[in-house]
Structures are given as structure tokens and as C-alpha cells.
């Protein structure tokens, strides 16, 4: 394969600068020793990270986001794993329609989903509760959990399951001893991707969050609406650091491009 010429490399460098600039600048400003927004050059300080301790609403929002992400990703997988097995293993009428329905939260703008959930949960009398947030997040992260599980289930050699059956395993034993271990990498990646999606969602959540159930992105957004100061950059820098960690984990154990392009059916391993 031929190499890139100098012009291509200049373009590439500028492109990468464009992509990382806003992320770098946030993290950089977060280390300012000043009381106002500035880009530190000689002095770096952790004062704004320490200051976070004095803003319990950020700490609380962070806890809400963590719990919400972890819980909704788990619940989403409880629904997604059997659904993925159904879509990958069985032929039945309406199968294509079903998979389109399950992936629809990717197509529907999150504003619309947020509005629909707000209307629905308010009518159901659970508006503003953590439970409502969990249900909404389960639906929104479901496609991500489903896609990776589906890719793993489709890519799996089915004769391995037949072998287990022929050796006398019943359906449940086969699932527990053979299928589950085989699709586990897909499930784990699906969980991580679902967690990130839940952890980062603003557009849908902002319709459902109330002061007690504000997630971190919602808290940050509302804060920025009022004023932008170094405090919110230190929050952002922390979020970026957490996401990067999960991201690198995902890349290591599954390959990031594969995680993000996984479509049920063609992402065999």
C-alpha cells in the first residue's frame, strides 16, 4: 500500500488539531490557577478540581449519572440478550419489523423521545422520578446493547450449540455453558457502549430530570446556561477522563471501529 504524501500529512495534522482542539482546551483551562477563564502557561493548579468538593450538586449529579448508566445498561441487556438470540437464531414472521423497532431509538431524534417520555411519565404519575429516568435510558441505550450482542450471536458458530445439545445439554444449560461464554465479549462491549451513551445523554434526559434527579450532563448544561467559569471546565475534564478510560478499555478488548460500526448480521468475528 502506498504512503501518504506530504500534502496529505499536512491535511491530516490540521484535521487532528481540529478534532482534539476543543477537548484539549477544556482540559487545559481546567488547570488554571486564576479565578477566571484563562489558559495557564506557567502555573498549573488543581484548585478548580478541589473546588468541586464544595459544589455538592455536581457530586450528586455525578452519582446519579453513574447509577443511572450502570443500572439502565444492565436492564437493557436483560432485554437485549434474549432479543438478540431471537433475531439471530430464529426465523419468524415480523422479524425484520421487530429489529427495525428495536433500533428505532437511533432514528428518532432524542428531543422527540424526551418529549414523548415526559408526556408519558407525567400521565403515568412517575414524572421526575429516578425510575422514569431508568426506563427512558433503558430504551435509549437498548439499540447499542442489542447491536453488539447481536453481532456476537450472529458471528458465533451455531454448530457449537448443536454439539452441546447432541451431548445431552438442555436449552438453558446450552445457553449458560456454551452460548453465554461465546457472546460474552459482545455483551461486555455492549454494556460499556450503553453505559457511555447513558452517561453522556443530555437531550433526552433534560426533559425528565428534576433537581433531585439531575444527571451530570444536565447539571453542566444548566450551569453553562448561566455562566461559563473554570469550575465547569474541571467538571468537563473529569468527565472526559472517565470516558477516555472506558473508551480505551473498549478499544483494547473489542476494537473501537468494530464497536461503532457493528451491525447485526455482518459483523462476524
Amino acid at each position: 500500500m502506498s504512503r501518504n504524501g506530504p500534502a496529505a500529512l499536512v491535511f491530516h495534522t490540521l484535521f487532528v488539531v481540529f478534532m482534539v482542539a476543543p477537548i484539549v482546551v477544556v482540559c487545559w483551562v481546567a488547570f488554571t490557577p486564576e479565578g477566571f477563564l484563562s489558559i495557564p502557561t506557567t502555573n498549573f493548579s488543581l484548585r478548580w478540581f478541589k473546588a468541586l468538593a464544595n459544589y455538592p450538586e455536581f457530586v450528586h449529579a455525578f452519582a446519579v449519572s453513574l447509577w443511572l448508566g450502570a443500572l439502565s445498561s444492565c436492564v437493557a441487556l436483560l432485554f437485549a440478550v434474549p432479543a438478540a438470540l431471537a433475531l439471530s437464531r430464529y426465523q419468524f414472521r415480523g422479524r425484520d419489523a421487530l429489529s427495525a423497532l428495536f433500533l428505532s431509538p437511533l432514528m428518532i431524534p432524542h428531543v422527540v423521545l424526551g418529549i414523548a417520555f415526559l408526556r408519558f411519565f407525567t400521565s403515568a404519575g412517575i414524572g421526575g422520578t429516578f425510575l422514569a429516568l431508568v426506563i427512558a435510558h433503558v430504551v435509549v441505550v437498548f439499540p447499542f446493547a442489542l447491536r453488539l450482542t447481536l453481532a456476537a450471536a450472529t458471528g458465533m458458530d451455531r454448530s457449537v450449540e448443536m454439539a452441546a445439545i447432541s451431548l445431552g445439554a438442555d436449552g438453558w444449560t446450552m445457553f449458560r455453558r456454551v452460548t453465554l461464554p461465546a457472546i460474552l465479549p459482545g455483551i461486555v462491549s455492549g454494556w460499556m457502549l450503553a453505559f457511555i451513551q447513558s452517561f453522556d445523554d443530555l437531550t433526552m434526559t433534560i426533559f425528565l430530570a428534576t433537581p433531585g434527579t439531575e444527571t451530570l450532563p444536565v447539571r453542566m448544561f444548566l450551569y453553562i446556561q448561566d455562566n461559563i467559569d473554570p469550575l465547569v471546565t474541571s467538571v468537563s475534564a473529569s468527565v472526559i477522563a472517565i470516558t477516555m478510560t472506558v473508551l480505551i478499555l473498549l478499544d483494547r478488548c473489542y476494537g473501537l471501529d468494530r464497536v461503532l460500526t457493528a451491525k447485526g448480521g455482518d459483523a462476524g468475528r
Binding site: S159, V160, M162, A163, A164, S166, V178, P181, A182
Partner: peptide, 12 residues
């Protein structure tokens, strides 16, 4: 007893 074309061994 069945031996499959792909052997179908349990990889784990």
C-alpha cells in the same frame, strides 16, 4: 455422538 465439520469445540 456427532462430529461437526467445523469441529464445534467449545472455545472457552
Amino acid at each position: 455422538g456427532i462430529v461437526f465439520q467445523s469441529y464445534a469445540l467449545f472455545p472457552h
